[in-house]
Amino acid sequence: MRIAVLSGKGGTGKTLVAVNLATVGAPSIYVDCDVEEPNGHLFFKPVDIHEEEITVRIPIVDHTACTGCRKCVEFCNFNALAYTDKLLVFDDVCHSCGGCLLVCQENALAEREKNIGRVQAGTSGDVSVLTGILNPGEASGIPIIHRLLDSSGEAKASTPVFIDCPPGSACIVMESIKDADYCVLVAEPTIFGVHNLNMVYELVSLFQKPFGVVLNKCLKGENPAEAFCVEHGIKILARIPFDHELGLLNSDAKIAAQEDETYQELFWHLLQTVGQEVTDETTAHS
């Protein structure tokens, strides 16, 4: 069972939900795909960390062999190459497809490995913690996401995997949810929250992923995110209150489900609900 936790913006509670689900679901795997600012490790404090460097391949030019035919420049769909009196390569724009090497008939292009970040694997009790870290200034963390998801895919099928996605609904989020069996959307009870919820709602609908919503920071009174769910017939999986104690636990980097019985129960129920949803989906499609 692979569960992705996502939201349209940062600070909605993705990490709160993913970390606590992985805790109550242990033995489990927690995968931090928010590679620009991974923070799940702050809660899990994993030990026995193994680190792997992540590199991408970037073309390098042999200017003496290059004849300036520009076949590579015309081929590159990402516009990562330009030719003035010599070939220019824009590393940050390159998507490492290797196409330029294929079209070069002069063998003027080769590839070099460029380090873009790393993946850390550690353990925290019965939770395996995988963290992706993108070097500051790098344009795309997608190669790191691929490595993270490959690593988590090596586990036994019975071990649940909880994927803490990057915020938003861009390519990097699509990569993070690609192999998920179920998506948990976390939403805030504001008009702005509804806008962000709608972004990820459209994304998971486009990917035809089964999904449900966790309403976070719930206050008494109206909840625009809840109204959105009712209007669109979206399943509400859980409601997390706007709670001072929970805020304190979080800012102390403590895992609520380990510290507080109410939250242990809340996330346990959420896990059961999600598990049931996944089972229902599997039955419905088999």
Partner: peptide, 18 residues
């Protein structure tokens, strides 16, 4: 021709100017 490119528009546009 780069005006609607998803990415790298500036590079391609500069190539046109060059």
């Amino acid at each position: 021709t780069a005006a609607a490119a998803a990415g790298g528009a500036g590079i391609k546009a500069a190539q046109l100017v060059v």
